[in-house]
Design a protein around this nucleic acid. Structure first.
Length: 276
DNA sequence: CAAGCAAATGTTTTTACGTCA
DNA sequence: CATGACGTAAAAACATTTGCT
């Protein structure tokens, strides 16, 4: 995948970074293959595509099936917050082992909460005001450090970090979510700049090629010599559109320019000039 | 007081996993 | 037993709100 692909299929506009060591089969460990900004940005190479992807957002029929879906935060919300008027209050009966595990975690979180005095103080007074926590420098630093290692946390890591920071797991989770969002925003800005540069380079290259084409056309008109040659002896490099004279019409080996397997597409970062 | 930042919340989408025919 | 369809929960992405500086 790269710049060349967009040339053949056309009209695909996208930006992103493709890992060079990308495996085609997502493993179970890599649960969310989309849009993860790992630390090893040096191991990825930029890819640009222009146009429309065939991929579209799918609308799920049973949208409200998982309305309780926010129960991903069930344990945290239920344990630590006064239920908001809009929150889904009841996810009553669980039976799966996974939920059991979640319950275990929740009990752990309760323990964490007990330790965390700054939180219980706020909640216990009955006032449902949404107080905003300001993380200390130390907390932020540790979170940053952890984020550098993993941009996402598994439940155990979350628990451990929360305990270490004297925060609720939910707060750690939220911090990571927001941090990922900021990272992505930053990355989008970088990509935007990258695309701008690409656009400028391509515009310049296009201008140069147009000029060269004009010159060649003028040359062709000024030199009737070409006209006297058999058409088959004139070949044009598909990449740079320079005209060459084939020595004979029989063998491709004698033709100075052979057709490229596919149209040359200019990549300003790997090919600063035309292929010839 | 408006603006910007960041914590928090709500919604949607994706994925993994269990169950059942 | 293998397999595919289906339902559900969890987690992440995404969008928005809100409190604080």
């Amino acid at each position: 995948m790269g710049f060349d692909d967009g040339c053949n299929t056309g009209l695909v506009l996208g930006l992103g970074f493709t890992s060079t060591a990308e495996s085609s089969t997502p493993s179970k460990a890599a649960k969310r293959p989309c849009l993860k900004f790992e630390q090893s940005t040096t191991a990825v190479e930029p890819s640009l595509t222009l146009g429309l992807f065939g991929e579209t957002y799918k609308k799920v029929n049973n949208i409200d099936v998982n309305k309780a879906g926010s129960c991903g935060e069930f344990s945290d919300h239920q344990l630590y917050r006064q239920p908001s008027p809009h929150s889904h209050s009841a996810v009553s009966s669980f039976s799966s082992g996974r939920v059991k595990r979640e319950k275990d975690l929740s009990s752990e979180e309760t323990e964490v909460e007990r330790v965390s005095s700054r939180i219980s103080d706020e909640d216990d007074d009955g006032v449902n005001a949404r107080k905003k926590l300001r993380l200390t420098k130390e907390q932020s630093a540790l979170l940053e450090e952890s984020f550098k290692q993993h941009s996402t946390l598994n439940p155990k890591q979350k628990q451990a970090l929360a305990r270490q920071l004297n925060l609720r797991p939910r707060q750690v989770e939220v911090w990571f979510q927001n941090r990922r969002a900021r990272t992505k925003l930053k990355q989008t800005e970088v990509d935007c700049e990258f695309l701008k540069k690409c656009c400028e380079t391509l515009t310049d290259e296009n201008r140069r090629l147009q000029k060269e084409l004009q010159e060649l056309k003028a040359l062709k008109l000024a030199q009737p010599f070409y006209m006297h040659m058999p058409a088959a002896t004139l070949t044009m490099c598909p990449s740079c559109e320079r005209i060459g004279t084939g020595a004979g019409a029989d063998g491709a080996s004698k033709i100075p320019f052979s057709m490229a397997p596919k149209p040359h597409c200019f990549n300003p970062f790997t090919n600063p000039s035309a292929a010839c």
